[in-house]
């Protein structure tokens, strides 16, 4: 379907533009202002150019946080996407059970972030938490506050529990749109289960999976509340991801200049990655349409 050009449409979006200007663009400009200036209060600013950026790029702290962030995003993508597809594939296609499965799956998505964090914080505690206590009973050294491995495992497990459903729902919708004839043809061709997945299901899922990966990447790259509630970024700085680090820097230490430079770079990275995803998706879509 081609787009129709209609200039009048711009007037319709004007109120939204004004709203966005006040809620996003003006605060963003303030951040930009902080990033290039230094201040000693009283609204007195000194131009420092790229100094804050250079400081941030030179600091190990930001690079370490970025590494942790990338490892975290990669880990949850590597678990959630295959797991999500696997669950979607094993779900019933129609009937009462399909509806029940869908409702159950949607449940974690409806819980607020900080509640999810609290649930897992309690769940993983060695003294009263079911998970922590059970593992401790088996003699495994599991302590969120002291053991970095335990902290990582808990945070990843929590994210998988919270968000795999999203991948499942998307993949399930994708699977439903495959015409029955494809499965019949595959049966007649005596295709193996793997071949059906590889040549029928996966190609048809490509579009929704890209959306799932994009959503999960952006969300996980900006994750804050849950790890903050569960581990507070610790032990040490073992689970201090970019956003947690940023908040520590800006609100904990009041290093507004470096924090502003940091957040601009953070923003640019997300923008870049989203743009890359968007381009890939549009290109795929175009190929699809020329068929």
């Amino acid at each position: 379907m081609e787009k129709t050009q209609n200039n009048r449409a711009w007037f319709m979006v004007l109120p939204v533009l004004v709203l966005v200007a006040f809620s996003a663009i003006i605060p963003l400009m303030t951040v930009v202002n902080y990033a290039f200036n230094d201040t000693f209060g009283n609204n007195v600013f000194f131009w420092v150019g790229l100094e804050w950026f250079e400081e941030m790029l030179g600091s190990d702290r930001m690079w370490e946080a970025l590494m942790r962030q990338l490892i975290f995003s990669a880990a949850i993508l590597a678990i959630e996407v295959p797991l999500g597809i696997a669950v979607a594939l094993s779900m019933p296609k129609k009937g009462l059970w399909a509806s029940i499965c869908l409702v159950l799956l949607a449940l974690p998505l409806l819980i607020p972030w900080n509640v999810v964090g609290t649930i897992w914080q309690v769940f993983a505690r060695v003294d009263i938490g079911l998970l922590g206590n059970t593992l401790a009973e088996f003699g495994i050294d599991f302590n969120l506050g002291q053991n970095a491995g335990a902290a990582w495992a808990t945070v990843i497990l929590m994210d998988v529990w919270h968000w795999t459903s999203l991948v499942v729902l998307l993949a399930y919708a994708g699977l439903q749109s495959i015409p029955e004839a494809y499965y019949q043809a595959a049966r007649i061709d005596q295709a193996s289960r793997w071949a059906v997945f590889r040549h029928v299901e996966l190609p048809k899922l490509k579009g929704v999976l890209l959306i799932a990966v994009l959503l999960r990447f952006m969300d996980s790259f900006m994750i804050y509340t849950e790890p903050f509630v569960v581990t507070g970024g610790g032990p040490g700085s073992a689970t201090t991801f970019l956003s947690i680090d940023l908040v520590k820097m800006a609100l904990g230490q009041f290093d507004l200049g470096p924090a502003a430079a940091f957040s601009i770079m953070y923003f640019l990275v997300i923008l870049l990655v989203s743009w890359a995803f968007y381009t890939i998706m549009v290109n795929l879509d175009r190929e699809e349409r020329t068929e």
Partner: peptide, 20 residues
């Protein structure tokens, strides 16, 4: 079952494996 009957079928809409 279908696989044991050794038949071939051509459907209303073309069914091809796009990746191949």
């Amino acid at each position: 079952p279908t696989t044991e009957r050794n038949i071939a079928q051509v459907f209303q809409f073309p069914v091809v494996y796009d990746t191949m």
